[in-house]
């Protein structure tokens, strides 16, 4: 088993933990953190392929930098949405956020 396999396994494990959290938990902040974890797993894959892949160049590193920037923006907007939901229904349970259901 090569080191790239190990990196991919670590990233797959992180992705599945994040996915399970995003699917199971009812708390909006934990769902957002699960999504952040999945994004981190994707970044980890970029670095792993940059390190162990056979291609040349440093596109992987640059892409991860942009991905981190977009993740920061996403976290800010997501937590602002959580605070807006809290202002409307006084808790952040996703099961109760059904006002837009129709």
């Amino acid at each position: 088993m090569s080191p790239l396999h190990l990196c991919l396994l670590l990233s797959a494990g992180l992705f599945c933990i994040g996915l399970t959290a995003a699917l199971c938990r009812g708390n909006a902040i934990l769902v957002l953190l699960g999504i952040e974890l999945m994004l981190n797993a994707a970044n980890l894959n970029f670095i792993a392929f940059w390190r162990y892949g056979s291609g040349s160049g440093s596109t992987g590193v640059v892409f991860v930098l942009f991905s981190i920037a977009v993740a920061a923006a996403e976290a800010a907007v997501g937590l602002a949405l959580v605070i807006a939901v809290y202002r409307h229904q006084r808790n952040i349970r996703l099961q109760e956020a059904t006002r837009l259901k129709g």
Partner: peptide, 20 residues
């Protein structure tokens, strides 16, 4: 970004949204 900034934002969001 993550350990410094996003963790602070998350902690503030947790503290601002305590359930009654």
């Amino acid at each position: 970004v993550y350990v410094g900034a996003i963790s602070m934002v998350v902690l503030f969001a947790v503290l601002l949204t305590r359930p009654a």
